[in-house]
Design a protein around this nucleic acid. Structure first.
Lengths: 195, 195
DNA sequence: CAAGAAATATACAGATCAGTCTACTTTTGA
DNA sequence: TCAAAAGTAGACTGATCTGTATATTTCTTG
C-alpha cells in the first residue's frame, strides 16, 4: 500500500520541508495551514502524513532544515575570519548583517516558534531552545579561547547582543543594527580582557 | 437595541481586555480563540463585538493595556533611581529583572505579536512597533542627557541589550540575564563617555 | 516485465474558528 | 418610574482546521 515510512529521505519530503520553512517563515506557524503548504509544494496530503506524524513534526523538520543551513553559513563565515577568536566573534555580526539584508529576512524562526508554542513540552519549543543553546555553546567556546576571566558572562552578553540585534533588525526594519551590535560586542570583549 | 458603542469605557470591556491580555500572553494570539477568552471572562460574545470590531482590535486593546501597565511600572522605577541619567538607564535592567522573576513572565507580548502578525499593515504589528519605538525614544532621551557624543548608537545598543535580555530570559528561563545585561550596559556607557 | 513501494486525488470526519442575528433580560440615569 | 442603553443566551453561518480513509495511479527497481 501507499505508505512511505516516516523520517525516510525522499525528494518529496525534502521539498515539503523547504516549502514549509518558507511559508512558516513568512506567515507564522498557526496562521499558515497545512493545506497552504501542500498547495504550494504541489504534494498530496497523505504524502505529508506518511512522512510526518503531525503538523508540529513538520514544523520541527523545518526548524531543523534551517538549523543546518544556518550552521553551514555561519561555519563558513567563521572560517573566513581566521583563527583569532575575537575576529570570529566579531565576524558573527557581519554574518548577521548579511542575513538582515537578505530580501527574505523575516526575523528569527526559533524565537517565533517559542512564542507560538510556549509550553516546554511542545516540540517546536524544544527544537527552538536546542538551537539557541547550541549557539550559546559556540559563543562560550570562543570566549573561552579569548582567555578572559569570566568567559561565561561575556558569552551570554554577546548572545544577548545578537538576539537583540535580530529583534531590532526585524521589528524596526533596521539591518544596520548588526554593526551597532558588533561595535558593542567589541567594547564588551575589550572590557572583559582588561579584567 | 443592545448595542454598546465601540471604544466606550465599560467595566465589562475592561475585564474582557484584562482576560484577553492574560490568555494571549499565556498561549499566543492565534492559538487562543475568542470563545476561550469569553468563557474565562464570563462575558457574552455580542458584548465583545459591540466593543471591538474584530479579534485583532481586541488584541490591540490588550497590547495597549499592557503598555499602560508597563509604562507605569517603568516610570516609577526610573523615578526611584534619582536624577542621574546613567542611574536611570541601569535601573531599567533591575526593573527588567523584577519582570523576569515574576511568576507570570512569558516573554514580550510585542515581539510575539510582531511574530504572529508579520505584515506591516496588521494592526497588532503596528501596535507592537509603536511600543518598541516609544521605548527606543526613551532610551535616546536618557542617552542624550548623558552628554555622550554618539547618543543614538548607544541608545540602540542598550535597546538591543534589553531586547536580547528578554529573549534570553524567556527562552532559556534565565532571569539572571538582566544583571549580565546591566553589566554590559554599564560597560557600553563608560566606553561611550570616553569617546 | 512485474511487484512493491510511493505518491496521488478525493472525499470525509469532527472540531474549531471568527463573526452575525435575534429575542430577551438587566442595568442605568434622568 | 420608565425608557434607553448595555448585556445576555444561544442558535447559526460559512469557512477553515488537522488528520483519516480509500481507491487509484505512478515510480522504482530487481
Amino acid at each position: 500500500m501507499g505508505m512511505a515510512q516516516k523520517n525516510i529521505p525522499s525528494a518529496k519530503r525534502d521539498h515539503l520541508v523547504d516549502t514549509a520553512l518558507a511559508l512558516f517563515t513568512e506567515g507564522g506557524y498557526h496562521a499558515v495551514g497545512i493545506d497552504t503548504v501542500l498547495a504550494r509544494a504541489g504534494v498530496a496530503k497523505m504524502t505529508l502524513y506518511n512522512h510526518f506524524a503531525s503538523k508540529e513534526d513538520l514544523i520541527v523538520a523545518a526548524l531543523a532544515r534551517k538549523a543546518e543551513q544556518s550552521a553551514q553559513g555561519l561555519e563558513k563565515a567563521l572560517a573566513e575570519a581566521g583563527a583569532d577568536p575575537q575576529a570570529k566573534l566579531l565576524a558573527m555580526f557581519d554574518w548577521l548583517e548579511g542575513w538582515f539584508r537578505s530580501k527574505d529576512f523575516r526575523g528569527c524562526i526559533y524565537i517565533k516558534a517559542a512564542g507560538e508554542y510556549p509550553k516546554k513540552k511542545d516540540k517546536p519549543n524544544q527544537a527552538a531552545l536546542a538551537f539557541k543553546q547550541a549557539r550559546v555553546r559556540l559563543l562560550l567556546e570562543l570566549c573561552r579561547q579569548l582567555g578572559v576571566k569570566d568567559a561565561d558572562t561575556l558569552a551570554w552578553q554577546i548572545a544577548m547582543q545578537m538576539e537583540g540585534a535580530i529583534v531590532v533588525a526585524s521589528m524596526h526594519s533596521r539591518p544596520g543594527a548588526a554593526q551597532e551590535a558588533k561595535a558593542a560586542a567589541a567594547v564588551l570583549i575589550e572590557a572583559a580582557r582588561r579584567v
